[in-house]
């Protein structure tokens, strides 16, 4: 009933709309003040900023884990915090999330971890679910580890398995908290490639918190740079623009640190 023109070619809702949101924990100082941004379908948005500036907290707000104090979050056009728990739950099925620490279910093996959302929320036959889960695990380079428990894997492998699980329902929106931290450059590049493929071909929107300059430059369409002191967004744009043309001090610092590093490794 909301659509004005049934055959409008490119009508879409924004997967994420954030308006004048205060980020922070109750009874503590606000970490980020009145921030606003939008994420379009198929867009890969990077949330950048110094450690402790509140990126993970912002993600917790976005996925409905941490109540917000003021402002508004709309996912797919719906106000996340307007309704009660049931409302949030129904919205939650529309996105996937990978937590900073992986957060795999320790008592399930990898394939069961990845298959679980499909088992819970779809009517697919068991065999097809298993193939789908195997496919997701292979995508993140974990074929052969289907029957391992998370605890018997390395940190990077757990991370990749967590991404596979976030992909389980192939939601149109994925939140990834530091997906490539702790991964070797090759795996990390493979992961970046996967993210781009999914975004371009399935129109998945990604909101990625990351510090990896390599991933930032190759994957991200639009970077949003937060700052701890200014408690807000200090720069926004393509990584290329922020790295080479932005006059913002924080952006220069953030991206120059990377070039410094590469110089020192070169020497």
């Amino acid at each position: 009933m909301s659509s004005t023109g049934e055959n409008a070619p490119k009508e879409f809702v924004y997967p994420v709309e954030v308006e004048k949101l205060d980020v922070g924990y109750p009874e503590q100082r606000v970490l980020l003040e009145k921030i606003s941004f939008k994420v379009a379908p198929g867009e890969i948005v990077g949330l950048l900023g110094p450690s402790g500036c509140g990126k993970s907290t912002l993600l917790r707000h976005l996925v409905g884990l941490e109540p917000i104090k003021s402002g508004q979050i709309r996912l797919f056009g719906q106000d996340l915090w307007a309704g009660g728990g049931v409302h949030i739950d129904s919205l939650r099925r529309k996105f996937g999330i990978m937590y900073q620490g992986g957060a795999l279910f320790g008592n399930l093996n990898l394939i069961e971890n990845v298959a679980m959302p499909l088992k819970e929320f779809s009517n697919l036959p068991q065999g097809a679910i298993m193939v789908a889960a195997r496919l997701k695990l292979s995508l993140v380079g974990l074929e052969g580890f289907e029957h391992h428990l998370p605890s018997s894997l390395s940190g990077g492998m757990q991370k990749r398995a967590a991404i596979a699980r976030a992909l389980s329902l192939e939601p149109k929106l994925l939140f990834l908290d530091e997906p490539s931290a702790g991964l070797d450059p090759v795996t990390s590049a493979g992961l970046d490639g996967l993210i781009v493929t999914l975004a371009r071909n399935l129109n998945l929107a990604f909101v990625i918190v990351t510090h990896e300059l390599g991933s930032i430059m190759t994957t991200i369409d639009r970077a949003i740079l937060f700052d701890k002191e200014k408690k807000g967004i200090v720069a926004e744009g393509t990584p290329d623009f922020l790295a080479n043309h932005s006059e913002t001090l924080e952006a220069k610092a953030f991206f120059r640190r990377g070039s410094n590093n590469s110089r020192t490794t070169h020497a």
């Binding site: 036959p125 065999g127 097809a128 195997r134």
Partner: peptide, 14 residues
């Protein structure tokens, strides 16, 4: 999507 492709691959294997 990938879940769809997985179903096709599953059918194929059956």
């Amino acid at each position: 999507d990938l879940n769809g492709a997985a179903q096709l691959l599953w059918l194929k294997s059956i």
